[in-house]
Simulated scan of single mutants.
Amino acid sequence: MIKVKNLYHSYSNDDNYAVDDVSFEIGKGEVFGFLGPSGAGKSTTQNILTGLLPLQKGEVEVAGYDVKHIKNKMFNKIGMSFEQSNVYNKMSGLENLEFYRKLFDVETRNPMDLIKLVGLDGKENIKAGKYSKGMKHRLTFARSMINYPEMWFLDEPTTGLDPAIAATIKDIIRQENERGVTIFLTTHNMYIADELCNRVAFIVDGKIRLIDSPKELKVKYGEKLVEVEYFKNGELAKDSFSTVVHEEKQKLIEVIREHEIRTMHTKEATLEEIFIKVTGRGLV
């Protein structure tokens, strides 16, 4: 669904690149996470893919269309949920969706169904300018689905949402992906990426440092440990044991044999820990 080869972009029209020789491909039905701190080049890349920024250098194909020669038909196939909501404040939530659906010449979803899906029912007739930040974000998210997009761009889809609403949004993303929608997810939230993505790319200073699945990254970069809580002399003790070092494995066996085990689970590195290990950078 997406092919990017040797992509560059400079805001100053010189060799100071915000996106520097970026290449990747995304297959149909994949959830691809584009992960990095603020200023890493995530939004710049996404804006080029969606036609909001001109292609300066490189080759980019989205949903079968060359973005250097964008055709209006491409926008029938893509949806875009922005981190910064850009709804019409003087229109109600429902009016926003009714207006937006008229911009497409393909089948669109029922606006009221989308209002209910994101939990804004009962507030559909309120002017969007009176919505909270989180409500505007949900309206923007709903709007991005209205044309049944085949390629769905999501920029920080759970930012500013309370945990219950964020869980609902993640469920919707999973459901759409099960329907066959390909998803390009830009975020600095490693937890949502770990939950949703088939593969992730780490981008820092405009360059992609690594592309792989969360599972493979944890296997490759995570320590193979078992964390055990057990009772020792009447008190609760907690230790971690390597599952690859022979002496540590023997100690684990002794603890299991000689003590009452309260909890035991494997410990794996988080995506954030792996990101820091690979890039030497944090996510802020």
Rank of each mutant, 00 (worst) to 15 (best):
I276C: 07
S12L: 14
Y221T: 08
E254G: 12
H69F: 10
W152I: 10
M264V: 14
K102F: 07
E150T: 10
A164Y: 11
G64V: 14
D21K: 02
K220L: 11
L252V: 07
K133V: 04
T279C: 07
T108Q: 08
G39N: 13
E83R: 02
G51D: 13
S240D: 12
E258I: 08
K133C: 04
N72F: 04
K73R: 15
P163I: 11
L117E: 13
D239P: 02
S213K: 02
T263E: 15
G222A: 13
F153Y: 03
K3E: 12
A201T: 01
D21G: 03
P149D: 06
I146D: 01
G234E: 02
K224W: 04
S242Q: 06
M74K: 11
V284C: 12
K71E: 15
R209W: 15
L154E: 01
M80Q: 06
E124N: 10
S144Q: 08
N125Y: 05
N6Q: 12
F34H: 06
T182K: 03
T263N: 14
I256D: 02
R143N: 09
N110W: 08
A193L: 03
D15I: 11
K5W: 08
I2Y: 00
R138A: 09
I203Y: 00
G134R: 10
L283K: 07
V219G: 04
K232V: 12
V87R: 01
D66N: 15
D155V: 09
L210D: 13
L53T: 04
F231A: 11
K116D: 11
Y65H: 07
Q84G: 09
L55Q: 00
A201W: 00
G129Q: 05
L120D: 00
